[in-house]
Amino acid sequence: MTWIMIKKEAREAWRSRRFLILLIVFLIFGLMNPLMAKLTPEIMKMSFGKQFSVPAPTSLDSWTQFYKNNSQIGIYLLAIIFGGTISGEVNRGTLVNLVTKGLPRRTVIVSKWLVITAEWLLVALVSFLVTWGYTAYYFPDQKSPHLWLAFLPLLLFGCSLTALIVLASTLARNSYEGLFMVIGYTIVLYLLSLFTDFKHYNPLSLINHNLTFLTKAGSLTPYWPALLVTGVLGALALLVANLKFARKQL
């Protein structure tokens, strides 16, 4: 049953051009990162004059752009595109026919989360590989050794966030409400990140401290509570979404 709905969701993602748009945008991100890294010193020179000495860009600058783009735009783009994934179907009434045919409601939640997460993993990976390729070509230095260790926390945060997006759009009446709930969630995380004592617990560290993970060996290890909290929050979000959706009026 889950497989049937996964196929339906995947078809929806493809035919509504939703996946294509996501893919193109993340591809553009991937290309922009090394470009911005190269351009920034040039722009500095142009605005402050030739005398202004700027250090030559390195691979680190490119990866800085990558994690900045992902944590500041990529995450919200997900929330914008998927913020109405459940509420939209409820409002249109498209689930009535399927549920009255015996489709278990938890299948709706689970298949949606799986497909959204798969979409995110794919586009994030594409963006990562593109940035990686160009960075290796333009900045062949040894300054960013732990590429995957830095990237994996972002992926985990994304998977947890998609669960939260599904929950938000279950609780919300429309996609705007869903979007605002997700934004509210990240604001809470940002406020918590002001307490630096908690940084090893805060899920937000997984997308804000990536440069540390990238450069220093073993720097991810103390963050294991944050990884755990992120995973648990995601699982919890899915659980609550299931409970709420079971009682939701279609």
Binding site: I28, L35, Y134
Partner: peptide, 20 residues
């Protein structure tokens, strides 16, 4: 010179942006 140097990035970038 800068333009030529970054052609490998600029071509796909411009194609994607225009495509979109």
């Amino acid at each position: 010179q800068f333009f030529m140097e970054n052609l490998p990035i600029l071509i796909p970038l411009i194609l994607l942006e225009f495509g979109l």
